[in-house]
């Protein structure tokens, strides 16, 4: 899928395999943002840096698409660090997904690119 072929500035984001999820932080105002940009969308500083997120968050909202061959869950996950990102919930029974659930990141291959998705944190 051509859509996931990253532009050059975001290449580190798409290399963030092996359990690493990267965010951008503004060196001027300190805010984290997603999706990653070379500039800060809050103060427009051009000085930003990559930082590693812990990979944990909670489900802000979700929707299970049931039309089509195989149902799947799209979600907004709010990371512990603050930013909310669009993703899929995987490795989790679809009918048990709920807003507020803790999730952690897993990487899935989408047409040769490792893409961050999330699964429900196993109980205990």
């Amino acid at each position: 899928m051509d859509a996931v072929r990253p532009e050059a500035q975001a290449a580190p984001y798409w290399r963030s395999t092996g359990g690493k999820l990267l965010l951008k932080r503004c060196k001027a105002c300190g805010e984290l943002h997603h999706y990653p940009r070379p500039h800060c969308p809050f103060c427009f500083s051009a000085e930003t840096e990559w930082v590693e997120a812990a990979g944990q968050g909670t489900i802000y909202s979700y929707s299970v698409t049931r039309r089509g061959a195989e149902p799947y869950a799209i979600a907004f996950v709010t990371l512990a660090e603050g930013p909310t990102l669009l993703t899929n919930i995987v490795d989790t029974p679809l009918d048990t997904i709920a807003i507020g659930q803790p999730v952690d990141v897993v990487f899935r291959d989408v047409d040769g690119v490792a893409v961050p998705m999330f699964r429900r944190v196993p109980p205990g």
Binding site: E7, W14, Y35, T65, I74, L85, L86
Partner: peptide, 24 residues
């Protein structure tokens, strides 16, 4: 499918559609 649209690489892989976005 245009990776030059800055949000597309961060949304299209997750199969965001009009209906599931409004569903959320």
């Amino acid at each position: 499918s245009d990776p030059g649209v800055p949000d597309v690489p961060y949304e299209t892989p997750f199969r965001a559609t009009i209906v599931n976005l409004y569903g959320m």
